[in-house]
Design a protein around this nucleic acid. Structure first.
Lengths: 137, 137
DNA sequence: CTCCGTGCAAATACTTTGCAAAGCG
DNA sequence: CGCTTTGCAAAGTATTTGCACGGAG
């Protein structure tokens, strides 16, 4: 039933790349990052492996930002912030919804809830300070 | 500065279509729904108007589900649930994050937060009961 | 030797865009 | 009339997939 999984150096590298950053990378970012060390790496492989990791729960998907899916190697519950100005994705360490409330919602609405994603949208600190500067001019 | 906005029967129809349902439609759904009454409607127009409504805050985007952006005519704060089995999007009336907590996060992390989206992932009631049935067989 | 993993390129799928024509004010 | 909106079709972009070959067990 379970599919056998062979070792692959590239797969390891892809996972390591996602885990190496808090930038919530795209498939293409991972590809570009690994390309120098793995010149024959192909984008399809990156996509295939990311999809597999995501399905396994080894990584999570933050969602699609500006048309590109963003991944996160940090699978502990936390919150994400997306800057509508520069498109960056930031981690917010706080967890705003307790597992009790999730369990409550499951009962109340007859759902099975597997994950809880919170996405805040707005302007990041960096973009905020740039805006302030320019408004002084 | 503000761009002038002309009346358009099709634009009205597009907004009405999104508001007419709680299915959190895609651009294509809106297009197909209006096509019979507006045979010369084009998909590009639907995309253009949805983008505009979203920017105006007249509608909101639930996010991208299975590669397609889902919209919602209900702009009051609420929560969304996405079924990983059938892809449906359900409204959860509850609001899990108070505006006080949002304001707190803004101060704590030096952000400007414009919207708070909560996306629960799991299995919807309908798919749950189907699974139960089939496990009896 | 037998499957799994991959490169490559083609195919998909959704969304965006340029342009000329039609519509609103 | 001037600016907005649209249809149409082409282009753009991210992602997926088929297939033959190289690699792990």
């Amino acid at each position: 039933m379970e599919k056998r999984r062979n070792y692959s150096r590239k797969r390891e590298a892809i996972l390591a790349a996602v885990r190496s950053t808090t930038s919530h990378p795209t498939a293409d970012w991972v590809y570009e990052k690994l390309k120098p060390e793995y010149p024959d790496l192909s984008l399809g492989t990156v996509y295939r492996n990311l999809a597999q990791f995501k399905q396994d729960g080894t990584i999570i998907s933050v969602g699609v930002v500006n048309g590109q899916e963003r991944f996160d190697g940090n699978v502990r519950p936390h919150t994400h912030f997306v800057c509508s100005n520069c498109g960056c994705v930031l981690d917010i360490p706080d967890e705003y919804i307790s597992s009790e409330r999730v369990a409550q919602a499951e009962r109340k609405y007859h759902l099975q809830i597997d994950s809880t994603d919170i996405l805040l949208h707005g302007v990041c600190p960096e973009c905020l300070s740039k805006k302030q500067e320019s408004s002084h001019g």
